[in-house]
């Protein structure tokens, strides 16, 4: 079946509009699309979307993470093997994290990381058939926001589409939530979210607000945040 932008698509559909618009500009096929000779076929079920100028992708609901280079992820250190740590980022295999990939780390000055720590890191290598590799520094050797996350926070899983939704610049939820209470948050593109507020009550409330956002349209988000804040006041 032939489909256009903003249509609901299932695998095997042919995206006709993409080939038409490819006269001058460079077309980029994002996740959920593949080229087969002179056609563009859909490989995932969801909504076909376009970002200017010519980036096409299928927005789909997904739980399993497939690593992509340059994405920020939250992971749990599961193993310490020689000079690398093995980190579970929810992908098919464990990612590796060198102890030298931290700010100011040298062979003698090792970072203080133990098994069970939660880490916010960037994917340096993520390609087919290779083990994903994480780093906790940027290209200037600074750690920025990356690194070990405090054990006082709470880690929970969500769908990849929710993580993408929260990270989208137009998403109001985090700003609205910040008006009600103070919190710290690390959202990984792998659908793992670490969160810490002033108290356990507040942390759990904020986590619930985020999980509820999955099925909440943007217009109802202020109502969601204020109802959570009201419930919090009642408890404390």
């Amino acid at each position: 079946m032939e489909v256009n932008i903003k249509d609901v698509v299932v695998p095997g559909d042919v995206a006709v509009e993409i080939m038409k618009s490819s006269e001058k500009e460079r077309v980029i096929l994002g996740p959920g699309l593949r080229r087969d000779c002179d056609r563009v076929l859909v490989t995932k079920a969801g909504v076909l979307k376009r970002r200017k100028p010519a980036i096409f992708y299928v927005d789909s609901y997904q739980k399993r993470y497939v690593p992509n280079r340059g994405e920020n992820v939250v992971g749990i250190v599961t193993q310490k093997a020689g000079d690398i740590y093995r980190v579970d980022i929810g992908a098919g295999e464990l990612a590796s994290l060198s102890y030298l990939a931290f700010e100011g780390a040298t062979k003698k000055n090792r970072p203080d990381i133990v098994v069970g720590d939660v880490i916010f890191a960037k994917l340096l290598v993520a390609s087919k058939g290779m083990e994903p590799e994480l780093i906790c520094v940027d290209s200037h050797g600074k750690k920025g926001k990356l690194g070990v996350l405090s054990p006082d926070g709470m880690l929970f899983d969500c769908s990849l589409s929710l993580a993408r939704k929260l990270l989208h610049p137009s998403c109001q939820l985090l700003t609205l939530l910040a008006k009600e209470q103070a919190y710290e948050i690390a959202i990984g593109m792998n659908g793992k979210i670490w969160m810490k507020a002033r108290s356990v009550h507040e942390t759990i409330a904020a986590c619930n607000a985020i999980l509820a956002a999955e099925n909440t349209p943007p217009a109802e988000m202020p109502a969601l945040c204020s109802s959570i804040a009201r419930n919090l006041l009642r408890i404390s």
Binding site: V10, P11, G12, G32, R34, L41, T43, K44, A45, G46, S60, Y61, Q62, K63, R64
Partner: peptide
């Protein structure tokens, strides 16, 4: 398979 968003050739 459709719901898990694994890449498929067709349904």
């Amino acid at each position: 398979l459709i719901i898990s968003s694994i890449s498929m050739k067709f349904t």
